[in-house]
Structure formats: structure tokens, C-alpha cells
């Protein structure tokens, strides 16, 4: 059986990503062939969603071809951006439920925490999404209770608790000082503990990366780059002249705020065309 898992694995290692990792390992242990499509850049995944917001639903619809089942985790930033208002939320949830209806595969929806779905699990758009699911999994008991209280009786029947998040042990302990430690020892210990705090980038619970809106993951040409480097479009050896000219044009358009949306649309279209 081939399963498409839509959601974010580490990094960062958070309750949510560990929960999805545990689900992936459970599916693999049952013999499923799993591929991961992540809505967040730079996480462990086979594919990453290129476009935030409602456009992601289209990408999921395209990616789901060839899979027997879909497991989809709702997360901050997916399927609508953190800054989306009521209309944005409705558009994101609506587009996703439409895509899931169209692809006609058994779908498991996961919600690690009720806080992962801004605006709560209720509302017409959310209800239409829950209706597409064969199974709805809650990451913890509080989320289970919140969903049980909000979902329609039909949807509540599909509700279950998700498998426990995968336990990952902490790294090297920072250690303690003996009585006669020197100033140098103390400084080293303070630095070690500071490094432990900073290590949230890789395995942490503070999750600074997770708070970055999806749009911020896109390149921002011009930020902090000296002028010659900005002006120089990336060149690939042995690339046909036409394609190279196109790349240079898109690169130039990306450097001007007026034409930047056009350049990004072209890149996105090319990326989707390449992938599907």
C-alpha cells in the first residue's frame, strides 16, 4: 500500500513533528510505502509544497495520484497562513476539502493540538473538511475532547487518539560544576547551557523556525547581498541558450518589486510542471 503523508517532520523536533514521525514509522512497520509531502520548507520529506495557502490544495491533489491513502496533518501555516483572516481560513480549508473530495482516496486527518488550527475546529469550512475524512486523529486528550465537543455526530464517530509521539532522548547533558571550579570552567558551563538552548534549531521545543510564516521561506533577493552578487543571475553550464535567457529574465524580474509576483508565479509554474 502506498501512503502519502502530508505534514511536517523534524526539524524542528517538536511534539507535533514527533507525533507525525511516530505515525510514519507505524505505517512503515505495517508494510506501507510512505512518501512525505511537507508544507514547511527544509523539513525531512520526499517533497515540499511549493505554494502556501489555497494553492497548496492543488499541489496535494496532483501529488496524491498513485497513492492508495492520504494522511494529512493540519498545522500552523497549513492549509492557511498564520496571518489569514476569516476569508483566508475559509479559502484554505475549502480548497483542501475540495481537493480531498476530488482525489477520492481514504483520508486520515490529524490535529496534534487544537491550537494548530487557528479559529478552532468548528465552522462551516472546517466541517466540510472533517466530512472528507475516513478517520480523524487527535494528538492528545485535550484536543480529542475539544474535537468531540465541536464535531458533528457523524464526524465525531471517526475520532480517535493518535499514536504517542516518538520519544527522542536529549543530547549530552551540560554537566555540573564541582566545588572548586575555575572561572573558565564556569564560563564553559554557561556556554554549554546556552548552546543547549540554541539547539532548539535542530531538536528543540522552542520552535523558532515553526513560527516563520510560510511566505518567509521564499528567497528574498537583495537582502544583505552586495550589488554584484545581486546583479549576477545564476548560470548553469551547458544550459540551452533560450532556457538560460528565460532564467536571467525571471531573475531580473524578481529583483523589482513591481514584477516580483510575476517572477514568482513563473517559477512556481515551472516547478509544478517539472514535478507533475
Amino acid at each position: 500500500m502506498r501512503v502519502l503523508v502530508v505534514g511536517s517532520l523534524p526539524p524542528p523536533i517538536s511534539e507535533r513533528s514527533r507525533g507525525l514521525l511516530a505515525e510514519v514509522l507505524r505505517l512503515r512497520a505495517e508494510g506501507a510505502q510512505v512518501e512525505i509531502l511537507s508544507p514547511r520548507a527544509n523539513t525531512v520529506a520526499h517533497h515540499h509544497i511549493a505554494a502556501p495557502g489555497p494553492a497548496a490544495a492543488l499541489e496535494i491533489g496532483l501529488a496524491a495520484r498513485g497513492f492508495d491513502e492520504i494522511v494529512l496533518q493540519l498545522e500552523p501555516g497549513f492549509p492557511f497562513t498564520a496571518s489569514a483572516g476569516r476569508a483566508g481560513r475559509a479559502a484554505g480549508l475549502g480548497a483542501l476539502s475540495t481537493a480531498l473530495k476530488v482525489i477520492r482516496r481514504p483520508v486520515t486527518l490529524r490535529l496534534a493540538s487544537v491550537h494548530d488550527l487557528p479559529g478552532g475546529p468548528g465552522g462551516r469550512a472546517a466541517e466540510s473538511l472533517w466530512a472528507t475524512a475516513k478517520r480523524i486523529e487527535a494528538g492528545d486528550e485535550a484536543t480529542f475532547e475539544a474535537l468531540a465537543a465541536t464535531l458533528s455526530p457523524a464526524a465525531a464517530q471517526k475520532l480517535a487518539l493518535a499514536v504517542a509521539p516518538l520519544e527522542l532522548k536529549a543530547g549530552r547533558p551540560a554537566g555540573n560544576l564541582a566545588g572548586g571550579a575555575s572561572l573558565e570552567d564556569a564560563t564553559l558551563l554557561v556556554r554549554a547551557r546556552a548552546a543547549e538552548d540554541r539547539r532548539v534549531i535542530v531538536r528543540g521545543c522552542g520552535d523558532p523556525v515553526a513560527e516563520v510564516p510560510l511566505g518567509e521561506w521564499l528567497p528574498r533577493p537583495g537582502v544583505g547581498v552586495p550589488f554584484p552578487a545581486q546583479a549576477q543571475a545564476p548560470v548553469r553550464p551547458q544550459e540551452p541558450l533560450g532556457r538560460r535567457a528565460g532564467r536571467v529574465l525571471v531573475h531580473a524580474a524578481d529583483g523589482v518589486s513591481l514584477t516580483r509576483p510575476l517572477a514568482r508565479s513563473v517559477r512556481l509554474a515551472r516547478k509544478l510542471a517539472r514535478r507533475y
Binding site: 527544509n42 523558532p208 523556525v209 521561506w217 528567497p219 537582502v223 547581498v225 552578487a229 545564476p234
Partner: peptide, 21 residues
């Protein structure tokens, strides 16, 4: 996104402090 990689590589060598992402 190899273009993003190239852009970050240039910024890194230009001495810019990179964000975690």
C-alpha cells in the same frame, strides 16, 4: 530550490548572519 541555495551561499560568503531557516 537550488536557486535559494545559491542565494544563501552568496550571502553567507558575503559575511551575512543567516537566520535558522
Amino acid at each position: 530550490d537550488p536557486l535559494l541555495w545559491a542565494s544563501i551561499e552568496r550571502r553567507m560568503h558575503a559575511g551575512e548572519k543567516l537566520s535558522p531557516s
